[in-house]
Design a protein around this nucleic acid. Sequence first.
DNA 1: GACAAATAGTTGTAGGAGCAACTATACTGG
DNA 2: CCAGTATAGTTGCTCCTACAACTATTTGTC
Lengths: 152, 152
Amino acid sequence: MTIQSSACPSGDEKVELFGLLLETNARLARTLGLELEAQCDLPLAWFEVLLQLRRASESRLKMNQIADAIVHSTGGTTRLIDRLVEAGLVVRESCPSDRRAIYVAMTNAGDAKLDEALGVHLSYLEKNLAGRLSSTERSTLTGLLTKLNAPS
Amino acid sequence: MTIQSSACPSGDEKVELFGLLLETNARLARTLGLELEAQCDLPLAWFEVLLQLRRASESRLKMNQIADAIVHSTGGTTRLIDRLVEAGLVVRESCPSDRRAIYVAMTNAGDAKLDEALGVHLSYLEKNLAGRLSSTERSTLTGLLTKLNAPS
DNA sequence: GACAAATAGTTGTAGGAGCAACTATACTGG
DNA sequence: CCAGTATAGTTGCTCCTACAACTATTTGTC
């Protein structure tokens, strides 16, 4: 029998769930990141940016939209986009209607790189998602995470 | 209508789910981290270590068990524990049966700090978990994440 | 229209984490 | 018992990211 502080239960059901979420995410992000890096020479953070851009209409987003979508600080996003620009995967474009804002748009090279990475990603998901959760379970999970992710 | 490469669908259901997982986790980790830091002056990574230690029998774990539990590299874990030791929250103890191994054990200060942090964490979870997911939904989510997290 | 407040993005700086190379110890087969 | 291999942990180095302070532009208010 393990003795624990009864006032602050480390075994609380919600604490366990939160810990499980952190751990699961960390494992999946790590393994995917390694695979993307090894097979496409593409860091996971770059992949996330490119994916967000493809989802966006006209394949472009403002800096702050990217920062929000990938949950980075604005300063971190500036540097991240710097590296993507240097690699030729995206370009910065000025925004005519708001001279403070900057659009980030995919280049053809970025588009091609994303296709390549998506191939790797899809086979990764086949192995690590489809193999573990049924289609029904996946949509349940999507629903739950959507609730969790909703703005307060 | 948005034009997208049909060969590599960025809108694939599994891709969406994975992205949602990354985003949800990043948001929750960030907000919890800020709160722990502000209210307890305790980085999230330190909290994770202390929590793992309390769960362990005899409140101690070997370095590699910690690295695995919190999904860090062994090198990163060494430095992380260095900082916790310096802060007086844990101590390193040699392992008699294997002289390569090192135990990390909580100090009384670490135990107290964890109690404090768990208070903050529990109220965070009350706000951000209990308010969004019912008890049933939470246990469903736990089940799904457990499957996802299972070793391949 | 002008001043205050809010917003978009960049930069200086510091700290944290990973990888690869390394040391030390333990195991395994001959 | 010895050689070769596997395991535990640390260290050097590099890159990435956050935070805070800053500039530039826009918006809101009187």
